[in-house]
């Protein structure tokens, strides 16, 4: 990214794992990036693919989806569906050559606050290495 502009990142965090992990990261006073907005969902499977595209076309530089590890879903199998959907989203972005690196899926449990910090910092570092999202300036969306 040019200058000292910070990438903007949106996260969809599952209420039972990743969100609790984020909460624990806060309670543990871990240093976290400030340019990250969180939307809490009751399950990562609630993240409809359209949400991701809406965020990207709206000018977000990155979107993170985080949920429970496979097998640990609070609703038994929601995250398996999330995994399939995210693969579909990635494939669509790849087919259109639209920077699939901007969408990420991670499994973060409620106790993994340091993993949460690591994932977030790495994601934002990677985004800093990219150009800013062209959708932010696109007129004819």
């Amino acid at each position: 990214m040019s200058g000292n502009e910070e990438p903007r990142v949106l996260g969809f965090l599952c209420n039972w794992c990743a969100y609790a992990g984020a909460d624990l990261a806060g309670v543990s006073r871990l240093q976290l990036p400030a340019n990250f907005c969180v939307i809490r969902t009751m399950c990562s499977a609630r993240t409809e693919p359209l949400f991701l595209f809406k965020a990207l076309l709206g000018g977000m530089d990155g979107v993170l989806v985080a949920g429970c590890h496979p097998g640990d879903c609070h609703y038994q199998r929601g995250n398996y569906f999330t995994r399939r959907r995210l693969v579909m989203v990635q494939e669509i972005l790849k087919a259109l050559n639209m920077e699939h690196e901007r969408v990420r899926l991670h499994w973060i449990s409620a106790s993994e606050c340091s993993l949460y910090q690591k994932v977030l910092t790495e994601f934002i570092e990677d985004l800093k290495g990219m150009e800013r999202n062209v959708a932010r300036d696109e007129v004819f969306l």
Partner: peptide, 17 residues
């Protein structure tokens, strides 16, 4: 500046999903 109504691309991407 932006095209109105919005979401032309969003519609097609949505159908792809």
């Amino acid at each position: 500046s932006m095209r109105l109504p919005m979401d032309t691309l969003m519609f097609h991407l949505g159908r792809m999903n």
